[in-house]
Nucleic acid binder design. Structure first.
Length: 425
RNA sequence: GGAUGGGUGGCCGAGUGGUUUAAGGCGCACGCCUGGAAAGCGUGUGGGCGGGCAACCGUCUCGCGAGUUCGAAUCUCGCCCCAUCCGCCA
């Protein structure tokens, strides 16, 4: 959510930001309407407060007169009259405020200057690591090799839960546990993140704080009897940890890592990418979240991204880093890097991580602030997050990329201590 | 699910209709005192919004919302949350 003050003095900037996202036609009218309402809002506030000030004076007079035993009927009548006016004016203010707030919620974040404008076609590959294995190298796709090696059981996953739910078995199940420990340990021990273990069910306030609600209620798995929701990512509980709080100087900056299962209905996703592990309703993920200052947040995006990249390097999976163009950057994000791993079995690049800086856009909505120094006014933190990494696609990539001609799969060295074996066969 | 108790400022805690523009204490900041410190003394210490270059002024805020009243932390109604005990339970 934007600062409402931008509607007063940053209109050209906002307009330009919408244009860069390719949304000016759609959102230009919203901006205009919001600008007019903001002016009306301030006028209403001024009028209401003037009346309130008058009434406060009058009722104090009444108190004095009555204490002195003198009549105060005139003043009481005046106060009553002010009260009636206030009821009307205040209702007007409330409705204007509500409408401008609604409009603000429709406006996406302003992307940073270095983000290329336009849509997906303008995404830039900023760097690449390793040599992707050719698609025509005779690699068996992950869903076949996974079943052949007894690592996963897709039909029974579908039987007990539905399509898009995976049962991992034997070494496959152990692989999930190994990935969890490997990633969380590395981020906690070597990258300095505080380790968290968070609830997978969260309440409505929490879902609203990170923006999943009210707009995307249909995309969430819900438990209506308790008004709870299954998290689509650990970002939700982690970012809400300090919702409605003010962090003191000693508390900043903060960084958190958590493993969690993630639940996504993705109602309209039938069709592409549905095969195997690529798009599922429940998957596992290690998530990184950082609370940064405005001064450092841009740099912290590089740091966060490098931590995610480190996982891919240690898993010996070639990848590329994409800087997303404005039109492809998520609603709340100011700048996003996607990490993609090549799947030779599918012949496509798979998104395995998305690292974003949200500037103060998320923090304003969730009301997370900090004090730069004791006694100073609180400011909104800048939030960042990124997956490091999403398991299902990583498993798919490993099964294909590390596949040997005999159908076995070698385990990357960094993972061996966690998995307890060098090769899956 | 049942019962009881409770939500006041960073924390503790007073306050049942008008000098409460929220007492007092703790903590914190600054100053005085001191060779230095502690203690002591003094001053100041929430957040949002609006106006102003600023100092500052106004307004809202005692869990949330509505109501009664000239006036609500205080009275009425509804809701939310927390704690403890019981029941159930991995």
């Amino acid at each position: 959510m934007h600062d409402i003050r931008l509607l007063r003095d940053q209109m050209p900037h906002l307009r330009e930001a919408m244009r860069r996202r390719g949304k000016l036609d759609e959102l230009g009218p919203v901006l205009d309407r919001a600008e007019a309402l903001e002016k009306e809002r301030r006028e209403a506030i001024a009028a209401v407060e003037e009346l309130q000030a008058r009434r406060n004076k009058v009722t104090q007079e009444v108190a004095k007169l009555r204490k002195a035993g003198e009549p105060a009927d005139d003043l009481m009548a005046e106060s009553r009259a002010i009260g009636e006016q206030l009821t009307d004016l205040d209702a007007r203010r409330t409705s204007v405020e509500a409408e401008v707030h609604q409009l603000l919620l429709e406006l996406p974040n302003i992307t940073l200057e270095e983000v290329p404008e336009g849509g997906e076609e303008n995404n830039q590959v900023v760097r690449a690591w390793g040599e992707p294995r050719a698609a025509e190298s005779g690699v068996i796709p992950h869903w076949e090799i996974g079943e052949k090696l007894g690592l996963m059981d897709l039909p029974r996953g579908a039987k007990i839960s539905g399509s898009g739910f995976i049962v991992y078995r034997g070494a496959g199940a152990r692989l999930v546990r190994a990935l969890m420990n490997f990633m969380v340990n590395t981020h906690a021990d070597e990258h300095g993140y505080e380790e968290l273990w968070v609830p997978l069910l969260v309440n409505r306030n929490t879902m609203t704080g990170t923006g999943q609600l009210p707009k995307f209620e249909d995309d969430m798995y819900a438990v209506p009897s308790d008004d709870l929701f299954l998290i689509p990512t650990a970002e939700v509980p982690i970012t809400n940890l300090y919702r409605e709080e003010i962090l003191e100087p000693a508390d900043m900056p903060r960084s958190f890592v958590a493993f969690s299962a993630c639940f996504r209905r993705e109602a309209g996703s039938a069709g592409k990418d549905t095969r195997g592990l690529l798009r599922v309703h429940e998957f596992d993920k290690v998530e990184l979240v950082r609370y940064a200052t405005p001064e450092n947040s841009r740099q912290e995006l590089e740091l966060l991204t490098s931590h995610a990249e480190k996982m891919l390097q240690l898993l010996e999976l070639p990848y590329r880093v994409l800087l997303l163009a404005a039109g492809d950057t998520g609603f709340s994000s100011a700048m996003t890097y996607d990490l993609e791993v090549f799947s030779p079995g599918v012949g496509k690049w798979l998104e395995v991580s998305s690292c974003s800086v949200f500037t103060d856009f998320q923090a304003r909505r969730a009301n997370i602030r900090y004090r730069a120094a004791a006694g100073e006014k609180p400011r909104f933190v800048h939030t960042l997050n990124g997956s490091a990494l999403a398991f299902s696609r990583i498993i798919a990539a490993m099964l294909e990329h590390h596949q040997q001609p005999d159908g076995s799969v070698t385990v990357p060295a960094a993972l061996r201590p966690y998995l307890g074996r060098d090769v899956l066969r």
